[in-house]
Amino acid sequence: MPTKDVLTSADIAELRRSALGMADPLGVAAELADAVEQNRLADPDDAGGALTLAAEIAEIRGKPDAALRYAERALAAYPSGEDPLAGFARALRARALFQAGGREDDALAELTALRPFLLVQPDAPAYVSAALDAAGRSSVAETWLSEAVDTLLGGRATAAGASTQAITAVPAVEVGPAESPGVLFFLLQQRHRVRRNLNLPHDRHDDLADRLETQLVRRAGDRNGGEPDLLFWPRAEFDRLLAAHAELTGTYGPDWDAHRARLEKELVRLAATGQVGLGVLSATVAGLDGFAGRRDGDPSDRETRAGYARELAARPAARIAWPPERNDACWCGSGLKYKKDCLPRSRS
């Protein structure tokens, strides 16, 4: 990244979207830290966010010592420990402690201190569970998320090993507005993800997660005339899709280039919110039509496609991780390098 005299909030936001795809991500992290140290931020209040981004880059690139330094500086820069971004910085600090070796107790103590945030901050379920997942503590994440869900619902978790017949009815809970669905929604979604990865049986709270997601998808579609999803149609499948379901042109794009650009931009947007472990789900027309047939649904219906996406998400082979390294093959399967193909599409 070329050195700039002053980094604006827009510059930092752009780096959050693109830093990992650059030739020298660690250099970007160092530049961010230097900009804070040298008072080269247009808005001094951006210091915490800039250093948190530096810590995130270093942790992802396997440099726990640098990540730890940046995270601790970020925490000192935030005016309040209750700031949601401060919580993310603390989770990054815990991840770096796990990576560093010999400091697992310190890392777990840091995350334990963040447990109350699960009940009040929508982003907390994602960054706390991601830190525990990265350390091989997914079972701990499942316990914490389950207890938080029970606290918010005021109920008792389904007993382990309970039969389907013994599971109580799904509570009557409504999701919030599509742009701000609320803490419970994010808790349930993260718990559902963790339990799926642990191969745990579907329970009543998983049913509730599915139901609230369906509500949210419907509301987002009503608001936007369609919903962004992460179903990826490889080139041949994309042609088959539009031939069989021309009405989906508005959802997935008029051509394959537009389809890939939409996905790349959505992934960049999600990454900018702090989400990790992103990827797309490789879809087939036969798979979508088969799912719709089993559920007596319509392939063009967004709820049917959301259900198909959930089915694919349970199959590790269907998931394509994102982002690749800048010089690696592009995630779309074109055979070109990422930097020459889909990476630039996020900026078009």
Rank of each mutant, 00 (worst) to 15 (best):
A243R: 13
L75W: 04
G62I: 06
R219K: 10
E72V: 09
R17S: 03
Q165C: 13
P201D: 12
G155I: 12
E59F: 03
R40Y: 08
A131Q: 06
S163D: 09
G101L: 07
Y252H: 10
Q275D: 07
E266Q: 11
S139A: 15
G176M: 01
T284H: 00
P228Y: 10
E104A: 14
C342S: 13
H259K: 07
D328N: 14
R95N: 10
C330A: 08
E266Y: 00
G221T: 14
K339P: 01
L198W: 08
V120L: 11
P125G: 03
T251L: 13
L188N: 05
T284I: 00
A243C: 02
A261S: 11
A329M: 10
L153E: 13
Q275F: 08
P84T: 08
L15F: 03
R315E: 13
P316K: 06
E14L: 07
G335D: 06
R326T: 13
K337N: 05
A283K: 04
K4V: 07
K63P: 00
M22S: 09
R295D: 00
C332E: 05
T112W: 04
R319L: 14
D222W: 11
T284N: 01
L200Y: 09
A258E: 09
E37C: 11
G182H: 04
A258G: 10
L188I: 03
I60H: 09
V183K: 04
H259W: 03
Q38I: 02
D105P: 07
A113N: 00
G293K: 07
A246Y: 11
D298R: 12
R235D: 14
S180K: 09
R218S: 15
G290P: 00
K340V: 12
E266G: 04
P324I: 06
A317K: 10
E37Y: 13
F88N: 15
G27T: 01
G293Y: 06
R193K: 13
T214N: 14
G136V: 11
R103V: 01
A100G: 11
H202P: 06
R191D: 07
F232L: 07
A35T: 01
R103I: 01
R269M: 00
R269V: 02
E266M: 03
E14Q: 06
D65L: 12
N199L: 09
N39G: 09
V6M: 04
R302Y: 14
S300K: 14
A107P: 02
A89I: 05
E266W: 02
R240F: 05
L153W: 07
L241F: 05
A148P: 06
Q165R: 14
A309D: 15
D289N: 05
A314H: 10
V285K: 12
G226N: 11
A131E: 12
P84A: 09
D11W: 07
D133Y: 07
L85K: 13
G333R: 01
L145H: 03
L145N: 04
A178F: 14
G253I: 03
R305L: 14
D83F: 07
L118P: 04
A23E: 08
R195L: 04
A209M: 05
A162L: 10
E247D: 12
A321M: 04
V120H: 15
Q38D: 12
G221V: 12
R294L: 11
D255I: 01
N224L: 14
E247A: 12
A130M: 08
A135M: 09
L212Q: 05
L248M: 09
L241K: 05
N224Q: 11
F98M: 15
L198Q: 06
L278Y: 00
G101D: 08
